[in-house]
Amino acid sequence: MSTRWYPLYRRGNPQLRVFLPNFYMKLIKPRDPQPKNVVQFEVSMQMTKFDIKNYLEKIYNVPVENVVTHVRMGQVNRSKFGGYLVKEDDFKVAYVSLPATETFEFPDLFPEEKKNEEDKQMEQIENLKKDWETNKGRDKHRQGAPSWLGL
């Protein structure tokens, strides 16, 4: 399962092998509404339904009822410089159904408190831009020079 080479095991030497999986699972916010007990993941192309189920049950102790996978085609875009078509890699999507008693809610990554702070910071930036514009036009012969840079 691992692409890393390790020294051969020799009797008397300490065991230096650590096996890391080549799989990845990325939690995705679904583009279509899903039931409360369905979670969507982007997984590596080599993973099967059984691998996904075992991965979640053994490592994260999540009870899994059903797994449905399908392969989505990567987007086809036009290149900026040559004008030729470039296709992104295909990827596999897994829909994991939890038992009916379990529910999953996607975490709120951008709470209102932080949004309010960002709004305040944007207001400060706008005020600073207005001050800059007013101070920039004071000396017509030295455009763009700040007012504190006087002779």
Rank of each mutant, 00 (worst) to 15 (best):
M1H: 09
M1W: 10
S2Y: 00
S2N: 00
T3F: 09
R4S: 10
R4Q: 11
W5A: 12
Y6N: 07
Y6A: 09
L8N: 10
Y9F: 13
R11G: 02
G12A: 04
P14F: 08
Q15W: 15
L16I: 11
R17Q: 12
R17L: 12
P21E: 06
P21D: 08
Y24Q: 06
Y24P: 04
K26F: 03
K26H: 05
L27T: 01
D32H: 15
P33H: 02
P35Q: 02
K36R: 09
K36I: 06
N37D: 04
V38M: 02
V39A: 01
F41N: 01
F41K: 00
F41M: 02
E42V: 12
E42G: 05
M45Y: 13
Q46L: 15
M47L: 10
M47F: 06
T48R: 07
T48F: 04
K49T: 06
K49Y: 05
F50T: 07
D51N: 05
D51G: 03
D51T: 03
I52D: 01
K53C: 00
N54G: 08
L56W: 00
K58W: 08
K58E: 07
I59C: 10
Y60L: 07
N61H: 14
N61Y: 13
P63F: 02
V68Y: 12
T69N: 03
H70F: 10
V71W: 06
V71R: 07
R72N: 14
M73E: 14
G74E: 04
Q75G: 11
N77H: 09
N77Q: 07
R78A: 06
R78H: 02
R78M: 09
K80A: 06
K80S: 05
F81W: 09
G82R: 15
G83F: 03
V86I: 08
K87H: 00
K87G: 00
D89I: 08
K92H: 00
A94K: 02
S97G: 13
L98P: 01
T101V: 10
E102M: 07
E102K: 06
T103Q: 04
E105K: 13
E105W: 12
F106R: 03
P107N: 03
D108E: 12
P111Q: 03
E112H: 09
E113A: 13
K114D: 05
K115L: 12
K115R: 10
N116D: 07
E117S: 12
K120R: 05
K120V: 03
K120Q: 02
K120G: 00
Q121V: 11
M122G: 00
E123M: 09
Q124I: 04
I125N: 06
I125R: 10
E126N: 11
E126T: 10
L128P: 00
L128Y: 05
K129M: 03
K129Y: 04
K129T: 01
K130P: 01
K130V: 11
D131E: 14
W132A: 07
T134N: 14
N135H: 13
K136E: 11
G137L: 15
D139F: 13
H141M: 14
H141V: 14
H141P: 08
A145Q: 15
P146C: 03
W148H: 12
L149S: 08
G150A: 06
G150K: 07
L151E: 04
L151S: 11
